[in-house]
Amino acid sequence: MDDPLHPPIPPISARDEPRFGSAERKRTLAGAFAGQGADYDRLRPGYPDAVLDAMLAPLAGSAPTLRAIDLGAGTGKLSSALAERGLEVTAVDTSAAMLEVARARGRTIAAGSLSTHLARAEETGLPGSSAELVTVAQAWHWFDAEEASAEVARLLASEGVLALVWNMLDVTIPWVHRLSRIMHAGDIHREDFAPTVGPELELTDRRAITWEDPMPTQDVIDLARTRSYVITAPEERRQKVLANLDWYLHDHLGHARGARVGVPYRTDLFLYRVAAR
């Protein structure tokens, strides 16, 4: 029998996709990341090898050197991971501050190459058919799906692949579910979530990969500072969220201050090709 005081944890969010209330609210939240480059890069997780393997597998043998365009690249976490595998990567974003972090990452890469380009995902200005792989990590929901789909179809070379990827806290684990609620993590998808894309694109594969990112407890608290809800909240509300996280991790869960905690994640990957006409 269910305990009414401790209801069962839902397996995943009921959201079809992130909701913003209005186009103006969406623009406000999207713009909130502009000055968060250093914290975002330090605290947000990268992408496990299994995700990179899956997005590159359909392109095996398609070109001597693969070209990739990473839309909404932010600080270039995915861009640099692809470049380290030998790809020629162009990181595209609307935030000059974020791209400056990406450029710094690119200077340490020995295998492939990483360049940056300041532009909207919906209208990049890059040449058509100029990439075997287009990627979007943590950002597709910030774009106009119809316009971005048309731009992706224009950018992809023949038999090219679009990879949409999201890292999400694994809320099937009860303590992580509560963590996400305190943190106001709004990027948790329902189990059968499918991104909205235009008719130019057809889904060819999808994967869900679970893994852990070990972090000191203070970094878990600071992770909330990279969430759009917290960035845009009044100072009093922001400090309340951070204090609640401190209590939850150290008092309620009993972690020692500075202890490393394995934060469970689930990464959703969706692969597309341009639909046959």
Rank of each mutant, 00 (worst) to 15 (best):
M1S: 14
D2K: 12
D2R: 14
D3R: 11
P7D: 03
P8T: 09
P10K: 05
P10V: 07
A14H: 13
A14W: 08
A14Q: 13
R15Q: 15
P18S: 09
R19K: 12
G21N: 07
A23F: 02
E24L: 10
E24M: 06
K26R: 15
R27I: 04
A32I: 01
L43Q: 07
D49K: 11
D53I: 09
M55W: 01
P58Y: 00
L59F: 04
A60I: 11
A63R: 13
L66R: 04
D70E: 05
D70Q: 06
K77M: 02
L78N: 00
L82G: 02
E84N: 14
M98C: 08
M98T: 08
R103T: 14
R103H: 07
R103C: 07
G106F: 03
G112W: 07
L114Q: 09
H117M: 08
L118E: 10
A119I: 03
E123W: 07
E123I: 10
G125M: 06
P127R: 04
A131S: 06
L133T: 02
L133K: 05
L133I: 08
V136D: 00
Q138K: 10
V152W: 09
V152L: 11
R154S: 08
S158F: 10
L164W: 03
L164D: 01
W166V: 00
V171H: 05
I173D: 13
P174F: 09
W175H: 12
S180E: 13
H184G: 04
I188D: 14
H189Y: 13
E191Y: 11
D192T: 14
F193Y: 15
T196P: 01
G198T: 07
G198H: 06
G198W: 04
P199K: 03
E202V: 15
R207T: 06
T210N: 11
E212F: 12
P214W: 11
D219Y: 11
A224C: 08
R227A: 05
R237P: 00
V241C: 07
L245T: 04
H252F: 14
L253N: 10
L253K: 11
G254L: 08
A256L: 13
R260Y: 12
G262L: 12
R266L: 15
T267Q: 10
L271Y: 02
V274K: 12
